[in-house]
Amino acid sequence: MAWYAGRRLLQMIPVFLGATLLIYAMVFLLPGDPIAALGGERGLPPAVAEQLRAQYHLDQPFLVQYGIYLRNLLTGDFGMSFSRRPVADLLAAAFPTTVKLAAMTLVIESVAGIGVGLWAGIRKGGIFDSTFLVISLVLIAVPIFVIGFAGQVLFGVKLGWVPATVGSNVSFRTLILPAIVLASASFAYILRLTRTTVAENRTADHVRTATAKGLSTGRVMRVHVLRNSLIPVVTFIGTDVGALLGGAVVTEGIFNIPGVGNLLYSAITRHEAPTIVSVTTFLVIVYLISNLIVDLLYAVLDPRIRYA
């Protein structure tokens, strides 16, 4: 296990370097003056342009620039926003809210997704299964901003059950609607994945053997079918954690939730490219770390990986 973890960690290093280099190169190796490009259509105030030139060491050769950028990243320096606040501080302020929203979303999508998926998988081909199969397709097909707006108008404005926007008032009550909206697509994916693996495992040879041992139907389902089916499902949920912590840009934007996603959302609307780069880099790092944790989790769940 320790060797496995170590190997995974080592494999992550080139991916981390590659991903950050890729992000950096996308912004600074493109033709034209990167500073002007960062300013967007409106152009930059001269003071900001000067500060940016200093921050990114544009007078140095590219690899040196990247080295400095990497060193800053590792020391937690994500640069300055246009409002001259360190992006690291903005992130630190926003991250707890994102974590809260992500946790709620995760609970909703896993409980509902696994529950419905298990039922649909057992009764594959039945009415329940077919209904939820169609529902899941619709949830995947309709973009989150349409679901978000629809939910906001219906439950927030028309019915008034929950606040339409969150703002500075972050609580369970205000976050529940955004969490459900955010969970909708992943719920559909988890449902489908659980359904498929449960249906597959139910006919597995070892499940028949377990039944032949004289185990009760409930125990066969829990210990042999569900436990084995959870391996790919938990892996998917783990990857989703990365995406959720990576900020629900659209959802946080629509509901005005002061999380990391909203930070990115407002940076986009204000055309603050340097902040976009910094926040994106942070999100990619979070995503990488959570993927690493998923890999380790996978090894915990599946003994075949651990000893491979």
Binding site: G18, L22, M26, P34, A273, V277, V284
Partner: peptide
């Protein structure tokens, strides 16, 4: 390792 939407936002905003 770079989520599709994030990568697209990054490049498109440049």
């Amino acid at each position: 390792a770079i989520p599709l939407l994030l990568a697209a936002i990054l490049v498109a905003s440049v």
